[in-house]
């Protein structure tokens, strides 16, 4: 499947806030109620469309546990977008946001788009963090904010897509250089000029051009 751009995302936040569930809901459209601890980093991908352009999202779901923190830091640099997730039913996860944000800002490129997500909005009865608090935090730190539910899929799609829109906007504005892969953005196969795709011309591959195909 061809695409115009590829964006790399990372999902960060405390353990058990529903990072993997958000990813699973976005890529597979299903919800897994059992908490399966993520070891290191897991990978997921999905194609979306923004302004009639096919964009491939490559999402790296990190482990929230402290033990994996040093590993997950390695993923900050190469990501164009980050979903910073907290659990609206657990205040401590909200309190740790500053720590996460500092970490992300320190290790990522400065243009990385960060989306703040208050997950588990379906558990309204157990809410511990008000929506206004999330909004205030996002405003203060220049983040986009949304409350989602990986269980009911509410706002999940929107969260991923609006992040992508923000990145796409920055791309159009020239803030991002699509040719620098360290930004977490890659041009699709039809945009690349180096002959790295395998389907078309054999100009750069002298051995494949002659014969067996």
């Amino acid at each position: 499947m061809s695409y115009a751009y590829l964006f790399k995302y990372i999902i960060i936040g405390d353990t058990g806030v529903g990072k993997s569930c958000l990813l699973l809901q976005f890529t597979d459209k299903r919800f897994q109620p059992v908490h399966d601890l993520t070891i290191g980093v897991e990978f997921g991908a999905r194609m979306i469309t923004i302004e009639d352009k096919q964009i491939k999202l490559q999402i790296w779901d990190t482990a929230g546990q402290e033990a994996f923190r040093s590993i997950t830091r390695s993923y900050y640099r190469g990501a164009a977008g980050a979903l910073l997730v907290y659990d609206i039913t657990r205040r401590d996860t909200f309190n740790h946001l500053t720590q996460w944000l500092d970490d992300a800002r320190q290790h990522s490129n400065s243009n990385m788009v960060i989306m703040l997500i208050g997950n588990k909005s379906d558990l309204e009865s157990r809410r511990d963090v008000k929506k206004e608090e999330g909004e205030a935090f996002a405003r203060e730190h220049g983040l986009i904010f949304m409350e989602t539910s990986a269980k009911t899929a509410a706002n999940v799609e929107e969260a991923f897509i609006s992040t992508a829109k923000e990145i796409y906007m920055k791309l159009q504005e020239g803030v991002f250089d699509p040719n620098n892969e360290a930004n977490g953005i890659k041009l699709g196969p039809q945009h690349t000029q180096g002959g790295t795709n395998m389907t078309g011309s054999g100009a750069t591959t002298p051995y494949s051009s002659s014969g067996c195909c």
């Binding site: 990978f43 991908a45 490559q58 790295t196 395998m198 054999g202 051995y207 494949s208 002659s210 014969g211």
Partner: peptide, 22 residues
């Protein structure tokens, strides 16, 4: 995880030219 990434990233397609043998 990397196998999925490899498949998702369309890298298998990039392996195919390898097997062009005269």
């Amino acid at each position: 995880s990397n196998q999925t990434f490899f498949k998702e990233g369309s890298y298998i397609q990039r392996l195919a030219p390898f097997f062009c043998v005269l």
